[in-house]
Structure formats: C-alpha cells, structure tokens
Design a protein around this nucleic acid. Structure first.
Lengths: 241, 241
DNA sequence: ACTATTTTTTAGGTTTGTCTAAAAATTTGA
DNA sequence: TCAAATTTTTAGACAAACCTAAAAAATAGT
C-alpha cells in the first residue's frame, strides 16, 4: 500500500535525522574534547580528572560529570567513573580538527589581518567551531599550508598528523650557545606583551651571555645586537631550538 | 560593618552581570533580528507576521511567539500581539551589524578563498555571528572596504549606513538597450549555477536583442559577443543598471 | 587499618529555545 | 454581520548545559 510506503520512507528519513544528530558534536562538546586533548598532552598521556576540567572550563565538577557521561555514550572518550578520562580515536579526530581550525585562523588573524599575537585567542576560540571542511582546506591553501601558528604551536594536517620539531626551554640551554626562538609555553596576553616589549619574537636569534647564580636570570644577545634581561620565569616558558 | 559592605559590593557586581546579560544577544536572537530586517525590507517597511517568521526560521509559530515576547522585552522589536513586528532602532543596529558581517565574509570567501557565489551562504551564516568589532573592521580593511557582496547586495558601513545604487529588474528594460548586471534577487545555488552556465556574472554587459511576445523570454547579447536565452523567470530576478 | 579529607557522582532544579495541543484573536466570505 | 477559517498566542513539556546540595567513592595521615 502506498500509505505504508510513505510511512516507511518517513521512518527512514527520521532515522537519517537521528543518525545525523548523534554524529554531530555541539560547540560545547567540541570544547570539552579539545581541552581533554590538551590536558592529556600536558599530563604525558595520563587520564584527565573531572576537577581539572571543571577548573579550565570554568564550570562546576557536577556539570563536567554530566558532560563526561554524555561524551562516553557517544564513544568520544574512555570513561571509568572516578578514574578520569582519555579520548577515543574518534574523539581525538574531532579534537585535532578543532585545534587545526583554531591555529589556522590564528595564522590568518596575524598574517593577513595584522592582529598582534596577544590579541587573537578569543577570536580564534569562536572561529574554531565553524563547520565546513571545504572552508578549512581553502583557508589552509590560502595561508600557504603553514606548519606552525603565531605562537609556534604545531598545526595538525587534515588527517590529524602534527608536524614535529625538537625544541627545549631557554632555561635549559647552556651559556654561550646561540638558539632560535620557536615557541611559547604560556599564551597569556601579559606574557606575550612582555616579550614584545623586549623585542623577542618567533624566529629571534638568542645568544646566552650570562646566567645569574642567584636567581637563574639570563642576559641574552638578540639578532639586532640588543642585550636584554630575561627572568627565569620567562626563560622557563620560551621554547628554542 | 565590613560584611554589609561586601554584600553591597556583591549586589553591585550582580547588577553589573544582569545588565551585561540583558545587553547581549544570542546567536538565535541575532538570526531573528536579521530575518525581521530582511522581511521588513521586502514588505516595503510593513510589519512582519509570526507565520512568515516561522516559515523562514523553519520553526513553529508558537516558538516564534515566544521569541517575539523575549525580543520585545529587550526593546529590540516593536510588538503588538496579533499585529506583527518591526525593529526598533536598537534592533535595527544589531541586524545591520549581522548583515555587514555576513556580506563581508562572503566577499572574503569568494575573493580570497576562491569559493563560487553559489557555495558561500551556509558558511557566511555561521561566520556572521562571530563577535569581535576589531575583527570586522580589520576584515573590512583587508578586503578593501567593499560596497557590495558577491551577489551585488549592499554592505552596510560600520555605522549601519547602506550604500545605495539605482537598479531595476532586467525584465523591465526595453529592447535594444544595453545594461550592466549588478545583482540578483534570488540566492539559491540552482539559480546562481544557472547564471554561471550562461556566463552571466556580476558586471556582465547585457544588450537586449529580442523579447518574445508569447512568454516574455529574452535573447540577449553578452560582452563576450555570445548570444544567450533568458527566461522571464530569470529576467525578473536579475538586477541591472 | 580506619578515620578524615578530598574528589567525583547523583539528585533535583534552572534557563534557552524548541515542540504539540488547545485557546483566543483576527480575517474572510456568504 | 456573523459563523467559519486562519493566524497567533498561551499552556505545558522536553533536551542541552548549566547550577547547588548531598551522597558515594577514593585517597591520605597517623
């Protein structure tokens, strides 16, 4: 009967919609996945705790618990109650895609629009959730397929593979050695502006002239022949090669 | 007493937050305002009805009613029950800012990333809600402060002023006259792809060679000396100058 | 090893934006 | 003009993402 057929088609359509909804990740879910990815990295691959997530998302632990249950149902995280979480393959893919978009947009904001590296974070936090694969790939081409963002962070490729680069903290480099500034471990506007004021930017050549016994502060020579003072606190957060 | 002082400060803070929340417009609210603006234009300044809004937002009239009550409370629309709505000054400002962002991003997508004019609508619908005045103004500069978007629609300036341009429908132009294509009244991919196939684009020179008595279809001569056939349906939706 | 503390989860509630069903207002047309 | 049809609003519910308060599990200290 044609009415049965129509019902059947409608059911199929309905199923299609349900499957689509289940496959979709919301703005908020994407944020959780991204943060779990970054914290897992920081922890050296260990599980991320509920409280850590609550701290960073600026919500309460109870809200995090709710969300973790939901993400686990969607198979995006590995979740054993009270034991913290890690990402599944699928969750990692989504996290990497969000990070890719975030970092590509940061390159756009600095290279094309002329923003400072201390001004772009909040805008990129919004742009990273724009949903269009074609857009991401065209943006990537337009920017010349950059490997690193304006803070020196690696940009994963469309398959989620991160470019790697050996680097270490400036604080660990021996005296008299000459190195190149390739990244920062802290992204706060205050830190970045401090570097600007001292003419230290991505790509700066840094020669370590003197290290104080007392407070482990550095005096370094930059490529412009300027001699600047670098506290240990700063040196610990500068990546060089 | 210091406890009273603290309470008092907390109250002030709370007030501050409430004021901020009241001043903010959500993604969804922005969409309603934008749509009300566009429908009001189409209606020649008349009120927009609940059903019209339900149709376009793809929701139910009941949901629209709810939202209208909310927007009216925030003084963004003029709303008399059962009488339809218009925007207040404040609502219009927000609508124009969203439209400005939408059209600037469309220029970016076509001019810088190489998208076709039939592929950009859904992406711009997302980008138009990115919240950063500095971003909008830097994007505008980067694009060379364009006056019109890839469909020929005017881009309001940062104060909400629309550039104007006299134009009329191709269907209203007399025979033998030569005009320039400056816009479209329909933005569906199908229509835009049809124009692409006939080599009619923004800026094309069009000379009307022949008009059929029977179906009001046109034969026109383009700047590349190609002669193409234009149905009345198409001619009614082409803006020329 | 067993309290005390901390961490995490559960239970129950709020807001936003949606829904369906039903009521009320407006418009239409004989 | 007044009953029928249409449009709009109200009432009551639901899902997502959050909250507070309280219960349960894990960890730590002696």
């Amino acid at each position: 009967m044609s009415k049965n057929l129509i019902n059947w088609l409608e059911n199929l359509l309905l199923w299609g919609i349900i499957i689509k909804l289940k496959a979709m990740t919301s703005f908020t879910e994407e944020n959780y996945l991204k943060i779990i990815y970054m914290l897992t990295e920081q922890n050296g691959g260990n599980e991320v705790s509920t409280n850590e997530l609550a701290e960073i998302t600026q919500t309460k632990a109870a809200s995090v618990s709710d969300m973790l249950r939901k993400l686990a149902e969607k198979n995006l995280i590995n979740y054993r109650k009270y034991q913290g979480v890690t990402l599944t393959k699928e969750g990692q893919q989504i996290a990497l895609s969000v990070i890719r978009k975030h970092r590509l947009w940061e390159v756009f904001l600095v290279d094309k629009l002329g923003f400072g590296w201390d001004e772009i974070h909040d805008i990129a936090e919004q742009l990273e959730h724009i949903d269009s694969k074609e857009l991401t790939e065209k943006l990537d081409k337009f920017l010349g397929s950059p490997q690193f963002d304006p803070h020196g962070d690696p940009i994963p490729d469309s398959k989620g593979k991160m470019p790697s680069m050996a680097s270490c903290k400036l604080s660990e480099v021996p005296i008299d050695q000459t190195v190149v500034m390739v990244g920062v471990l802290v992204h706060s506007p205050a830190f970045l502006q401090h570097l600007d004021k001292n003419h230290i930017t991505l790509g700066s050549t840094i020669k370590i002239q003197e290290v104080s016994e007392f407070d482990k502060s550095f005096t370094v020579l930059l490529n412009n022949n300027q001699s600047v003072f670098v506290s240990n606190e700063v040196a610990k957060n500068l990546l060089v090669k």
